[in-house]
Amino acid sequence: MNATAARLTALGRAELTLLSRNRNNLFIAVLMPVLMIFLLRSSLTNLDGDLPMGIAGATLVGGTGMVLVLVVYMNLVSTYVARREELVLKRLRTGEARDAEILAGGALPASVIALAQCAILTALGPAVLDAEAPHRPDLLVAGVVAGILLLVALAAVTTVITRTTESAGLTTLPFFLISAMGSGLMVPVDTLPDPVASVAGLLPLSGVMELIRAGWLGADAVGGKELLGAGLTTVAWIVLSVFAVRKWFRWEPRR
Results as ranks from 00 to 15, higher is better:
residue 228 L to I: 15
residue 177 L to C: 09
residue 217 L to F: 11
residue 167 S to P: 08
residue 216 W to I: 08
residue 134 P to R: 10
residue 198 S to I: 03
residue 184 G to V: 00
residue 140 L to D: 05
residue 124 L to Y: 04
residue 173 L to N: 12
residue 218 G to W: 07
residue 221 A to Y: 04
residue 154 L to R: 06
residue 195 P to V: 05
residue 186 M to V: 09
residue 94 T to L: 14
residue 119 A to F: 02
residue 138 D to K: 06
residue 131 A to M: 11
residue 128 V to P: 02
residue 166 E to F: 15
residue 206 S to G: 02
residue 115 L to K: 01
residue 231 G to I: 13
residue 102 I to G: 00
residue 99 D to N: 12
residue 112 V to N: 03
residue 148 I to W: 01
residue 233 T to P: 03
residue 167 S to Q: 14
residue 108 L to E: 09
residue 113 I to Y: 01
residue 128 V to A: 09
residue 130 D to E: 14
residue 177 L to W: 06
residue 169 G to W: 12
residue 158 T to S: 11
residue 177 L to G: 08
residue 233 T to F: 00
residue 164 T to E: 09
residue 220 D to W: 03
residue 221 A to E: 04
residue 94 T to Y: 15
residue 118 C to S: 09
residue 120 I to G: 10
residue 232 L to E: 09
residue 119 A to I: 02
residue 123 A to E: 13
residue 191 T to I: 13
residue 168 A to E: 00
residue 115 L to D: 05
residue 193 P to N: 08
residue 148 I to M: 02
residue 157 V to R: 05
residue 120 I to A: 15
residue 176 F to W: 15
residue 196 V to C: 12
residue 202 L to V: 02
residue 120 I to T: 12
residue 209 M to D: 00
residue 109 P to W: 08
residue 97 A to N: 10
residue 182 G to S: 11
residue 179 S to G: 11
residue 158 T to H: 02
residue 174 P to R: 11
residue 126 P to F: 11
residue 176 F to P: 05
residue 103 L to A: 01
residue 137 P to C: 12
residue 150 L to Y: 08
residue 225 K to M: 13
residue 137 P to G: 14
residue 125 G to P: 09
residue 213 R to P: 00
residue 171 T to A: 07
residue 187 V to F: 12
residue 100 A to P: 02
residue 102 I to H: 10
residue 234 T to A: 10
residue 215 G to W: 04
residue 203 L to V: 10
residue 185 L to R: 00
residue 100 A to N: 05
residue 178 I to D: 04
residue 140 L to Y: 08
residue 177 L to P: 11
residue 185 L to G: 03
residue 234 T to L: 01
residue 223 G to S: 14
residue 195 P to Y: 04
residue 149 L to M: 14
residue 173 L to G: 05
residue 169 G to Q: 10
residue 218 G to I: 11
residue 107 A to K: 01
residue 147 G to C: 07
residue 145 V to D: 08
residue 113 I to P: 00
residue 133 A to I: 11
residue 195 P to N: 05
residue 110 A to L: 02
residue 98 R to Y: 10
residue 119 A to T: 13
residue 137 P to A: 11
residue 96 E to Y: 05
residue 196 V to Q: 03
residue 225 K to D: 15
residue 149 L to I: 15
residue 164 T to M: 09
residue 151 L to T: 01
residue 141 V to Q: 07
residue 223 G to K: 10
residue 200 A to V: 09
residue 149 L to H: 08
residue 200 A to G: 01
residue 177 L to D: 00
residue 158 T to V: 14
residue 95 G to R: 12
residue 96 E to C: 00
residue 124 L to A: 14
residue 159 T to E: 04
residue 221 A to I: 03
residue 111 S to R: 03
residue 138 D to H: 10
residue 222 V to Q: 03
residue 216 W to C: 05
residue 163 R to P: 05
residue 151 L to M: 12
residue 119 A to Y: 10
residue 114 A to M: 03
residue 223 G to D: 13
residue 229 G to M: 01
residue 104 A to L: 14
residue 240 L to F: 14
residue 197 A to F: 00
residue 219 A to M: 10
residue 232 L to F: 15
residue 172 T to A: 02
